[in-house]
């Protein structure tokens, strides 16, 4: 897995180009401010953060852990869905909200435990294992919902605490955003400043070294995938409380953008490794672009093309750079 051979080399040339992501971000920001006056307004920027950024950021952070460990998790959407389903079912059954939240996190972590067994227990490569989980999970949801029918929460039967999760405000900041910020900060601390985070990163760079260092590699890998699913479950909680409905297999909508943001973020690191600030910036870039294109009045279908081209260019610059650097 860890073939992205990090080689120490001169930072001067790369230092500049390394910030392709930051440059892209600034450029996009400037362009949209120029063409769409509404873009820069506080209300719009807040709506970007709440509607586009918060959820994707949570999923992308989860993905970052999997990628940092040298793997990938294609079943983050499944964890979102399972959490969402457990949450809706428990609320409908009249359980108190705190219990429903715990149930949702447990439901999501089931997916992670399943992945952990496949990846650390049996030794299947993460891509294949989580792809299998994605398919099995899709079928399981269709069985649970009578062939894939959405489960609605009636507006009247929803407790106040539930509404708070999706639409509440803490100190003037919407709850989804607060949750996203807390998770970002927590993930940053875990990945960069704890022993667990260092082992995860080391696993991604050279797994065999971790094993030879006498560390229980499989246990760390298992913990990583469970952590990924629990973080994704939080996204499931928030999305459900925002839209008050569970739609089977809807979580997969986040998958490709989360992968994109994570890998866009790797261009920020001198060694091209996954990192939380990079991921967050990647998510921010994707959200800003989505919102800016919408405001710019560009044909809806062209928006997807433009987004794809932008991701493509950032990746191309980032990777071409890294390639040039490793050759130097």
């Amino acid at each position: 897995m860890a073939q992205s051979s990090p080689k120490p080399s001169s930072f001067n040339v790369r230092g500049l180009a390394r910030y392709a992501l930051v440059a892209a971000f600034v450029a996009v920001f400037a362009v949209f401010s120029a063409i769409a006056p509404a873009f820069l307004s506080g209300a719009n920027l807040l709506s970007v953060l709440v509607n586009n950024f918060a959820l994707l950021a949570i999923v992308a952070i989860a993905m970052t852990f999997a990628v940092a460990a040298g793997g990938i998790d294609l079943s983050v959407g499944t964890a979102i869905d399972f959490a969402s389903f457990a949450f809706v079912s428990l609320v409908l059954a009249g359980q108190p909200i705190p219990l429903a939240i715990l149930g949702a996190l447990a439901g999501g972590s089931l997916v992670g435990v399943f992945n952990a067994i496949l990846i650390s227990g049996i030794g299947i490569s993460p891509f294949l294992a989580t792809l299998g989980t994605l398919f099995v999970g899709r079928s399981a949801q269709q069985l649970l919902t009578n062939g894939g029918n959405p489960v609605y929460l009636p507006p009247s039967g929803v407790p106040e605490a539930f509404r708070f999760l999706g639409h509440g405000v803490i100190a003037g900041i919407p709850v989804p955003l607060v949750v996203a910020f807390v998770l970002i900060a927590g993930a940053y601390l875990i990945l960069s400043h704890t022993r667990f985070g260092r082992v995860v990163l080391a696993t991604g760079i050279q797994a065999s070294v971790v094993r030879y260092s006498g560390l229980a590699l499989s246990r760390y890998t298992a913990a990583t995938y469970v952590l990924v699913s629990v973080i994704a479950a939080v996204a499931g909680l928030i999305v459900t409380s925002t839209v008050t409905v569970y739609i089977p297999s809807s979580g997969n909508a986040f998958l490709l953008n989360a992968i994109g943001a994570t890998f866009i973020g790797t261009t920020l690191d001198p060694h091209g490794r996954p990192n939380i600030p990079g991921t967050v910036l990647g998510v921010l870039l994707l959200s800003i672009v989505a919102n800016g294109l919408l405001l710019s009045g560009l044909n809806f279908y062209w928006q997807q093309v433009a987004t794809g081209l932008l991701i493509f260019s950032v990746l191309a610059i980032g990777f071409a750079n890294r390639k040039a650097a490793s050759r130097a």
Binding site: L256, V305, G308, F319
Partner: peptide
């Protein structure tokens, strides 16, 4: 450009679908 296939084809997929 040296982009890993998973990402390169992912980005191309987005553009093509668009």
């Amino acid at each position: 450009a040296g982009i890993v296939p998973l990402l390169a084809t992912l980005a191309v997929m987005n553009v093509v679908a668009g």
